[in-house]
């Protein structure tokens, strides 16, 4: 029994969610192998060598893996798949895009977004925006799984034996899909899904400029800034801020929801946070039903006051 984990990376570093995925892998029987595909990704390989619990690294370095497309990576993984009982990737936009393509090529049913491993073939995953939890037993020989990072501890650097590194021949580029441009949101802040404090704003913020007051609070707290769908749709903040059923899932130590009503689709992305604070001027807003601390107030008064007092 062996587990293959796909190491999403940006050619410099392994994405933090991969470390949680390795945490999930450590709960499964058998060795863990890590697939690193990138372009001039030597520093990723160095980081991978130090990770606890990885016995083998499969390394594929090629120019067209700088921004690898699912069309190419899925064929590379297909060529390895027969060796593995489990193939895991984080349930990030990268993993969600890639793994179903792999599952279809090897003709298995994927298990998306697992939050718990009960046995090598039995997993728990949320359905209906997290309003129900399904316990699923897979009959497939190979289990193809995306992992909800916030539900698993991340693996640390180990001090065990260094893993074996095997160089792979990269598959030829498909050419029918090419990444032609990227417009990444620049931020000095911690990454939203792994930050220990998240401050999120909703429609109540009223404008993009008004997000400045949240930024100031986030500065004080060393927090990431998130948003509801309404705030993203209104153009206040970029799409990658969206927390929820169809955006990012976060579970920080502290989540502060500001001017967010608390629709089920939003709750799905943040209700596993340790401590939730809701600030809303409507005492009946559903967000208060999940909040540990609720403050009924006008955010434009409350937020500067909180920032001031820290």
């Amino acid at each position: 029994m062996t587990v293959l984990v796909i190491a999403e990376n940006d050619n410099q570093l392994i994405k933090p969610a991969v470390l949680n995925t390795l945490g999930a892998a450590s709960q499964l029987s058998g060795d863990t192998h890590l697939l690193v595909a990138g372009s001039n990704a030597g520093s990723v390989l160095e980081q991978a060598r130090k990770l606890a619990g990885v016995t083998k690294i499969l390394y594929a370095d090629a120019g067209h893996f700088e921004n690898p497309v699912a069309e190419d990576l899925s064929r590379l993984i297909l060529s390895l798949a027969s060796e593995y009982e489990h193939i895991l990737a984080p349930a990030t936009s990268f993993g969600k895009n890639l793994l179903p393509r792999v599952a279809a090529l090897i003709d298995v049913a994927q298990i998306s977004d697992i939050v718990k491993i009960e046995a090598d073939d039995t997993f728990v995953r949320p359905i209906y925006a997290g309003n129900a939890m399904a316990k699923i037993k897979s009959r497939d020989k190979t289990k193809v799984i995306t992992v909800r990072a916030t539900a698993f501890e991340s693996i640390m650097d180990g001090n065990g034996a260094a893993p074996v590194v095997e160089n792979l021949e990269a598959v030829s580029p498909s050419e029918k899909a090419v990444v032609s441009a990227q417009e990444l949101t620049k931020t000095e802040r911690p990454e939203l899904t792994s930050a220990s404090v998240v401050v999120s704003g909703g429609r109540g913020m009223g404008s993009g400029e008004n997000f400045d007051i949240l930024e100031k609070l986030a500065d004080k707290l060393g927090a990431a800034v998130g948003a509801s769908r309404a705030a993203v749709d209104s153009g206040y903040v970029p799409n990658d801020y969206q927390v929820g059923q169809t955006g990012k899932v976060v579970a920080p130590e502290l989540y502060i929801a500001v001017g967010i009503s608390g629709a089920i689709q939003h709750l799905a992305g943040m209700k596993d946070s340790k401590v939730i604070v809701a600030i809303n001027k409507d005492p009946d807003a559903p967000i208060f039903s999940v909040a540990d601390y609720g403050l009924v107030a006008d955010l434009f008064e409350a937020i500067p006051e909180i920032t001031e007092s820290l």
Partner: peptide, 13 residues
């Protein structure tokens, strides 16, 4: 495409 880090454009045939 909306991706975790922002936006990405892919050209498909």
């Amino acid at each position: 495409r909306e991706i975790d880090g922002g936006l990405e454009t892919v050209t498909l045939t």
